[in-house]
Amino acid sequence: MPVTERYFRQENQYAVIHLPIRPNGFGVLYIGGNTHYVDEEQSCLLQHFDKRKLLSVLTEEGYTVFTSNLYGKNWGSDDAVELAEVLYHSVMRKEILNPSIHIIGEGTGALVVCKLLAHLKEKVRSICLLNPSLNLKNELDLERENKLFYKRTVHEILKAYKTTDIYYAIGRTCYFYETISPIKIYSSTRNHFKWKKDIRLLEEERNRNNLPISILISLEEKKYECGKNLVKFLKKYQTVL
């Protein structure tokens, strides 16, 4: 029986490569949000029913999908960004893949993706964002309504950024305005209601600069049923090797 998962450790964090039966030579880096995890023998992409379906669509199409625990609730910290870059180079050494990859960022994982682009630059073939959180300050402002959640979130952010100054952390806003890599946003109705202003601002800015972006809005219960559409988007940007 072929090996379909390869687990390993980097910087005391677990990572996994999900291997397809028939590789197409292209890699997908999956950067999850605050509920994402990888441990010594499991991946959130396998344990979560709907995410497993998305993973299956990708691997059945031949994509090699790799992901890391990235320190858990990292809130887009520099440590998480650096480890994601290390993961990319490690996978490129381990697997026979085209060096130009696709990236999927989910939830607060989008905060890691936007900073990672400055490190990988021309190595990013396309970007898919699933229900993304695009602004850390806005994320924190939403939590102000519940004091308990707000204090916990502040504590998590300060720990992730290794600082005692919350304004230092949330002031380091990053955007997807400059990258030339095409972006596709998959937003559920609930997420779009929360982050409509941020998403539309990004769309308007990229359109103004003639940079490719598209948005697909789905019902909340169908937010992970974008596999076929996502694959179609990825394939559009594989003609140039």
Results as ranks from 00 to 15, higher is better:
121 K>Q: 08
171 G>M: 03
167 Y>N: 11
54 L>F: 07
79 D>S: 05
61 E>Y: 10
126 S>G: 12
200 R>W: 11
153 T>N: 10
226 C>W: 09
190 R>Y: 10
67 T>F: 02
95 E>H: 08
23 P>L: 05
82 E>N: 01
44 C>W: 15
91 V>H: 04
21 I>N: 04
38 V>Q: 02
117 L>H: 07
208 R>H: 01
38 V>M: 12
196 K>W: 11
123 K>W: 12
203 E>V: 11
219 L>W: 03
57 V>Q: 07
107 G>V: 14
50 D>Q: 06
209 N>Y: 08
112 V>D: 00
200 R>I: 07
183 I>S: 06
99 P>C: 10
154 V>H: 10
236 K>I: 07
173 T>P: 00
55 L>V: 09
208 R>K: 13
159 K>Y: 13
235 K>Q: 13
49 F>W: 09
122 E>W: 12
137 K>D: 00
178 E>W: 15
25 G>C: 09
192 H>I: 12
43 S>G: 06
186 Y>G: 01
120 L>H: 09
171 G>Y: 02
80 A>M: 06
105 G>N: 11
105 G>I: 06
210 N>G: 02
110 A>P: 00
192 H>T: 11
184 K>A: 09
76 G>Y: 00
26 F>D: 05
176 F>T: 00
232 K>A: 14
48 H>T: 04
134 L>A: 08
195 W>A: 00
216 L>R: 15
60 E>V: 06
180 I>E: 14
137 K>R: 14
11 E>I: 06
83 L>H: 05
137 K>S: 08
222 K>Q: 09
158 L>M: 10
36 H>C: 03
60 E>T: 12
204 E>I: 10
80 A>L: 03
64 T>I: 05
84 A>N: 00
77 S>N: 01
16 V>F: 01
37 Y>D: 00
39 D>Q: 12
222 K>D: 15
47 Q>H: 10
155 H>W: 11
81 V>K: 04
101 I>N: 03
99 P>F: 07
114 C>V: 05
98 N>M: 13
6 R>C: 08
35 T>V: 07
115 K>T: 12
166 I>L: 08
109 G>Q: 15
233 F>R: 11
